[in-house]
Amino acid sequence: MITIALYLTIGMVTLAAVLNVYRLIKGPDAPDRVLALDTLYINAIALIILLCITLGTRMYLESALLIAVMGFVGTVAMAKYLKRGSVIE
């Protein structure tokens, strides 16, 4: 039963990622694209956890943590760049 639920969930998250990519391409403004990238990394974290459950190993959770940290820093840096024109003043 868990296997079926897992595959369904992986399908839904993948579809969500596709919709994010649609927003990433369509725009229309730069903040929209940054927001789409932000959502995309959160979806990537969800996919990594689902992969962990599917394979029955906890190994990949470290990478989920890394993506969470790096994604946040990236979003903040891009938003700061949009706002001020430079990341570090």
């Binding site: 897992l6 969930t9 919709l19």
Partner: peptide, 16 residues
């Protein structure tokens, strides 16, 4: 799992 997947999908639909 299903709730989480559904909410992720709904968030993306909202974004789109």
């Amino acid at each position: 799992l299903l709730t989480g997947g559904a909410f992720t999908l709904i968030g993306a639909i909202g974004l789109a």
